[in-house]
Structure formats: structure tokens, C-alpha cells
């Protein structure tokens, strides 16, 4: 890991010093041992602040939206799941591939900082569930890679210098069970499902963290931001919250890259991925397996019309 960090720092240093890029998105060591938050640097001498470890959970890709019309080229470090976000942004024409330098990293598997028992002393933490269910531990797209990792669009097992450890930890070991949670909810009765989601939406603060962290949520103006149209109210009532929650999920349908960031950032602990996964599962069933953000050439099943699209409702 240390040599990988050195490589990252050296590359960022070189990119900034040569002027090839005007900024670099990466991670840095946070104020506590279990924090590795995002970092944006513009000076070569700041490259030394870059850090990467099993706490670098943040998907940085949505931050690129701040540079969507910028002339400056920006470099960004990505894990496997993050790279799908970049691909989506490129597909949505929100990121000009000429203006971004994607640096793929091998993912060691991220751990669950919610399980920290002693914030003063370093101790082992369990692997995040999303990493156990990971299907794309390797970058699906990268201009450069560090640490032996290979770019591959195929779902599979981790590749790269940390691969062995990651596999040992269980990265990707439960990829086939990723719809398990969906099945559990599907097994409930309609009333139980309704009660379950009402309870979840009741908690929503309408902080919009889930929306803002999401690389698929890239509208210039969100309907939830402007109450001009009167489509939705600012009131944080269960009904309005549910309207937001469901609309958000439907809006990213077929574009969600399964990075799980929405659920991670939710301060109210709403299991947002359950609904995202339900939609993914439905798309898989209706249109054949489709993983958003893995193929630049393929428009998602919900973004085009095909003659053999299912149309039982007609």
C-alpha cells in the first residue's frame, strides 16, 4: 500500500508540475485513523498530501461536475466502482473525456467505519457489504493505472498488487447475492412493504446528500430545488419525502452504477440501495443483465427504444 501511495503522489506531482492537469482529485489522511476523505490539489507540492487506504470510500466522480464546462484538465483517482461513475458522466456528456485524466487504482476493499469501537486506537474493521457484493473491483475505464491493476469491462475478481489481500478479505465474494436484500423485501406483503418504506421515508431530512453525491444525478437544475413548478413541496413530510425518494430512484434507473454512495452518505440511515437494487434487478429481468457505466458504447436499456423491447403494457 505504501508503495502505491508513493506512486500516486509521484504521478500527481508530475502531472501538476508538467502542467498536464490543473487539478487532481484524490484522498488524504483525515483527522482520525479511520478517515480518508477527498482531497483536491492544484499545486505539485501538495501531492504529498495524497493518501489511499481501505478508508478511501468516497466516490469522487460527482465532484467532477464542478468542472463540467471548465477548460482545465483534471486528474482523478478511481477505484473500480468509481470508474463506472466516470463512464456514466462521459456517457451523459457531463465530462469531456479530453478534459479528465482517469487514474485507475487497485481496490483493497473498503471497510466499514461505522464499526469503529475505539476512535483512539487502530483496530481491524469488517469489509463493507458493498465491497463483498462488488462486481467490478477493477477500473472499467482509465487513462492510466497504478499498481498493476488492469482495466477490464468484465465483472470479476480484483486484479492488481492488492488483489490477493482483497480476495482474501472477501471482495466480490457475494457478487451473486446482491439481490438478496431485494428478495427479502419482495417477500413481504404489499402492506408490509408500504409500512417498511413509510418508516424509512419518515426519517428523511431532505438534505439531498444522496442526490448530490451521485454521479448519475447530474441535472443542471433539480426539480426538488425549484418549487416554482410546484411539483414537490419543501415540507419534509413522509409523503413529500417518499415522493423525493422514489423520484430520485426512478430518475437514476438504468444509470445507477451501484457504488452505494447514496446509502453511505444518508444521515438518516435510509437503505437507499435497496430500492436502487430493486430497479437494477427489474431492468436485468426485463432487458437482460445490464450494468450501468461499464460500456461506453452501449446506451442503457432505458435510454433508447428497441423493436424487441418488452411492451406487455401496450
Amino acid at each position: 500500500m505504501n508503495s502505491l501511495i508513493k506512486e500516486m503522489q509521484a504521478l500527481a506531482q508530475e502531472l501538476l508540475a508538467s502542467g498536464e492537469v490543473k487539478g487532481v482529485f484524490g484522498w488524504t489522511k483525515g483527522s482520525r485513523w479511520y478517515l480518508t476523505p477527498p482531497l483536491f490539489i492544484q499545486k505539485a507540492e501538495d501531492a504529498i498530501k495524497l493518501h489511499y487506504d481501505e478508508f478511501a470510500i468516497n466516490n469522487l466522480t460527482s465532484l467532477l461536475l464542478d468542472y463540467r464546462n471548465s477548460d482545465d484538465k483534471i486528474a482523478i483517482f478511481v477505484k473500480g466502482c468509481d470508474s463506472r461513475g466516470i463512464l456514466r458522466l462521459i456517457q451523459d456528456k457531463q465530462v469531456n473525456p479530453e478534459k479528465v485524466l482517469v487514474i485507475g487504482l487497485p481496490c483493497p476493499g473498503m471497510v466499514d467505519k461505522e464499526a469503529v469501537k475505539d476512535q483512539r486506537h487502530v483496530h481491524d474493521l469488517p469489509l463493507l457489504r458493498k465491497c463483498q457484493e462488488c462486481r467490478y473491483p477493477n477500473p472499467v475505464l482509465a487513462d492510466r493505472t497504478l499498481g498493476d491493476v488492469q482495466v477490464t469491462k468484465e465483472p470479476g475478481v480484483p486484479i492488481g498488487i492488492t488483489a490477493e489481500r482483497a480476495i482474501q478479505k472477501g471482495v466480490g465474494s457475494k457478487g451473486k447475492e446482491r439481490y438478496q436484500e431485494v428478495k427479502e423485501i419482495e417477500a413481504l406483503s404489499a402492506d408490509e412493504k408500504y409500512a417498511f418504506w413509510q418508516k424509512q421515508h419518515e426519517k428523511c431530512l431532505r438534505c439531498y446528500a444522496c442526490r448530490n453525491i451521485c454521479p448519475a444525478c447530474n441535472c443542471r437544475e433539480c426539480i426538488f430545488e425549484s418549487d416554482k413548478k410546484g411539483w414537490v413541496n419543501k415540507a419534509a413530510t413522509t409523503t413529500d419525502n417518499a415522493f423525493f425518494g422514489i423520484t430520485r430512484a426512478m430518475h437514476v434507473a438504468g444509470r445507477c452504477v451501484d457504488c452505494g454512495e447514496c446509502e453511505r452518505v444518508c444521515p438518516a440511515g435510509i437503505p437507499i440501495m435497496k430500492i436502487n437494487r430493486k430497479i437494477m434487478q427489474d431492468i436485468d429481468e426485463l432487458f437482460g443483465t445490464y450494468d450501468a457505466g461499464t460500456d461506453l458504447e452501449e446506451a442503457g436499456p432505458l435510454n433508447h427504444f428497441k423493436l424487441d423491447d418488452p411492451e406487455e403494457f401496450l
Binding site: 413541496n233 452518505v265 444521515p267
Partner: peptide, 22 residues
């Protein structure tokens, strides 16, 4: 640079008091 402009900080803050009338 890393802020995503969500309202988490302000909504969880015990002192943030801004409101809208709609």
C-alpha cells in the same frame, strides 16, 4: 472543492435556523 452542497451539516446542526416559507 470537496463539498457536495448537501444540507446534511445544516440540518443536523443544532443551531442552524434558516427556514423557507412556502
Amino acid at each position: 472543492r470537496k463539498c457536495i452542497n448537501c444540507g446534511t451539516c445544516t440540518y443536523l446542526c443544532p443551531t442552524c435556523h434558516c427556514f423557507d416559507i412556502s
